[in-house]
Simulated assay, not measured.
Amino acid sequence: MILDEEIELPRKLIVKPIADSYNSYSVDEKTKRDWSGNIYLGCIAAILTIAYFT
């Protein structure tokens, strides 16, 4: 593992003008949702449901 190398991920920015303002913009970063927690919860719920009905 080489610790000196950094990989920059491209950022997806959303630039929107602010209503009723002069030359002002809102800059938001578009991020992906992290589904790992939901998948984990779904698996636990499925295991508990199977265990309950058997």
Rank of each mutant, 00 (worst) to 15 (best):
K16H: 08
R11Q: 13
D28V: 09
D20N: 09
K16I: 01
L3H: 10
A45D: 08
G42Y: 01
S26L: 08
M1I: 07
D20S: 11
L48Q: 14
T49L: 12
R33A: 15
Y25M: 04
L48G: 02
A19L: 15
A46K: 06
I2A: 12
S21F: 02
C43G: 10
K32I: 06
I47E: 03
G42V: 01
E5K: 03
P10I: 10
K32R: 13
I47S: 04
V27Y: 01
N38C: 04
S26W: 04
A46Y: 04
I7T: 08
E8A: 09
I44F: 14
S26M: 12
M1P: 01
L3Q: 07
M1W: 13
S36G: 07
V15R: 01
N38Q: 13
V15Q: 08
P17K: 00
A46Q: 11
E8H: 09
L48N: 10
K32V: 08
D34I: 04
P10E: 11
S36T: 09
P10M: 11
V15A: 06
C43V: 12
I7K: 02
K12R: 12
I18Y: 03
A19C: 15
E5V: 09
A51F: 15
E5L: 15
N38R: 06
S24F: 07
E6Y: 14
L48D: 07
S24G: 00
K30D: 10
V15P: 00
L41S: 09
A51K: 03
I39E: 11
P10V: 02
Y40D: 12
I18G: 05
I18L: 14
S21L: 06
I44W: 10
I44H: 13
I50L: 15
Y25A: 05
T54K: 03
Y22P: 00
V27K: 03
A19S: 11
T31A: 07
E5F: 09
D20F: 08
L9K: 13
S21E: 09
S21R: 01
D20C: 05
D28N: 10
R11D: 05
D4A: 11
I50V: 15
R11W: 02
C43E: 04
E6C: 11
N23Y: 05
I18T: 10
E5R: 06
I14Y: 01
L3T: 02
L3N: 13
P17A: 11
E6P: 00
I39K: 07
G42L: 05
L9G: 02
T54C: 10
Y52I: 05
I18P: 00
W35T: 02
N38I: 04
R33G: 03
A51G: 12
K12D: 07
S36D: 12
L41R: 09
I44S: 05
C43F: 15
I47Q: 05
E8M: 06
L3W: 06
A51D: 13
A46S: 14
M1Q: 07
L13H: 06
K30G: 01
K30Q: 12
I39Q: 07
E5S: 05
I44P: 00
Y52H: 14
Y40Q: 15
I44C: 06
A45G: 11
S24N: 08
L13P: 00
D28T: 09
S21P: 01
E5C: 07
I7Q: 06
I14E: 04
